[in-house]
Structure formats: structure tokens, C-alpha cells
Amino acid sequence: MESDKPVKTESKAAGGELEAAGSGVKSNIKEEMALLKKKAAKENIREELENLKDPARTQIYKSIFRVKHEPTPRSRSLGVLTNVFLHLHPAKINRDATRFSYTWGMGGITFYLFIVLTFTGILLMFYYHPSKGQAYRDILYLESDVPFGKLLRNMHRWAAHLMVITTWLHMFRVVLTGSYKTPREFNWCVGVLLLVLTLLLSFTGYLLPDDQLGFWAVTVGTNMARGTPGLGHEGPFGPQLGMTPYNDVRFALLGGSIVDANALLRSYIWHCIAIPTIASVLMAVHFWRVRKDGGISGPAPIALTSEMKGPGARAVKQSVK
């Protein structure tokens, strides 16, 4: 067997090596000292330091980024494609797609705000108990005693408001540029669901401080559920179908017939776990579909009315490719 061979020859040579061991070690040390001296020479050290000045040439950098930081097309493409955070992008895009006037940047900003909200939200969770009696005190504590607690809460609130606005503006842009059309219809639907989830995230967060503002806003909001046709005790045909304040859809939302401890806990779970999870999944689908449906829709060369084919034809002839 081949693998045994080196072992055998080593054991044979062992006797001879033992004899030479004393003088051998000495000469080895001498050689190594000489080598160390050489390495410690001024020029060598300088060269090594010079190398450190350019982090892109260090082993640590290379081990992390895998691709040379060079302005070559290959490096630039690989820099995007081999990075897990950037690989949602294609390597190259339409030269006009980077224009703010076309995209308004609202989709990306919405996603960034979601990240900001997750970050600040997790920090807030460290200080918050979703229980009556404790919740409101936690907010007071956060505002007065926790370092940067007020900033944290403010930022979570304003980022949430901003996210609603950017979502709307994103949809507005998508409509104005006709970006929901074939083959992107389905992704538009996913986007509408994300809009609903954004609003629900904001709404469920409203109750959590357990103050008058949130309490009455949620009371007004969930009171509408009483009117659900067939499923609410004040809705059309609700009473006829056996709906009471204690078994209708509002009861299911609040975990009770009034906004109380159960409602607080439910909105906490929806707000911090359930909706963010669903939204994350839908976001993954949304972004993935953007790529699979051919990247962002434009800016595309304009089509002319005279180039429109007759009824039944799906696509417009595009003379410029």
C-alpha cells in the first residue's frame, strides 16, 4: 500500500537522525536566526508595512472579499456577484436606471427603512414588557433613563411613518412608469400585500406604548371590525349568523371584547414576530421576482402608438434594440 511507504522510510532513517541530532539542532537554530535577521532587515519591514497600507493586498482582505479591488470589468462584476449582500443586483444595469428622476429610489429606501426599523425595534424590545401596568412605565423608563432611549424610540416612530410614505411613492412611481405590466403583474400583487403588511405593522405598533393615543386609535380601528358582514356582531347578517361581542372577528383580533391585556400581547406578537416574518418572506419573493422578471422596468426606449399591433397581440414591436 502506498500510504505506508513514507512511514517505513522514516523509521529506518530514525537511527541516523538521532546521532546527528545534537549538531543538527544547533545548525538549524543558526539558520533560523539568520533567516529572522534577514526578515527583520529595514527594507523587508518597510516593504511589509507598505503592503499593509493597501488593505486590498492583505490576506485578510482577500479571504473576505475573494475578488481583487480593481477597476476592471471582471472585478467589478465579481465584486457584486460574489457578495451575499450585493448579489441581488445584476452585474450590469441599464445606464439610465441609476437616475434618481426615473426610480425615485423609493423601493430601496423602503427596504432600508425596514432594516432601520428592525434594528431599532430589536433594541426597543430589550426594554419593553408587553403587559398592562408595565408597558407604559417601560416607555417612560426608555424616555428618561435609558441612554439614547428617547432617540431610539423617536427613530423607530419616524422611520415607520417614513416607510408608509416611501411605500406609497414607490407604488405611485411603478404606476406612472407602467412597471406593473407584463411580465411584472404578479410582483405588483406581492407589492400590494407588502403595502398592507407595512400598514398593519405600523398599526399594531401604535398600541404598544399603551397610552391614550394608541388605545383610542386601536379602539376606533378595531371597532370597524364589528361591522364585518357576516362575521361581526354589528355587521349585516352578523347577528343572524350568531355573532355576539364574544365570538366575532373583533374578539379574535383583540383576544377579548375590549382593548386590554390580551390585545396588547396580540399586537406585540403580530408586530414583533408574525408580520415581520411574513413581510420578510414576501420581500424575498418581491426582490427575487424583480430580477427574474427582467430587472427594473426601465428607463426603456419609448414605444410609438403606430407600432402597436392589433388586438390580441401581447407585445409592442420595438424597432430599437
Binding site: T177, W188, L193, A303
Partner: peptide, 16 residues
């Protein structure tokens, strides 16, 4: 959600 499926106009994809 139905909006894209109701719009039978093939023009105007990707530009204002």
C-alpha cells in the same frame, strides 16, 4: 391587485 390584469394597454412599459 387586479389593476395590472385589467390594463390591456401594451404601451408605456418602463417610461413616464
Amino acid at each position: 391587485m387586479a389593476f395590472p390584469y385589467l390594463d390591456s394597454n401594451p404601451l408605456g412599459v418602463g417610461y413616464y
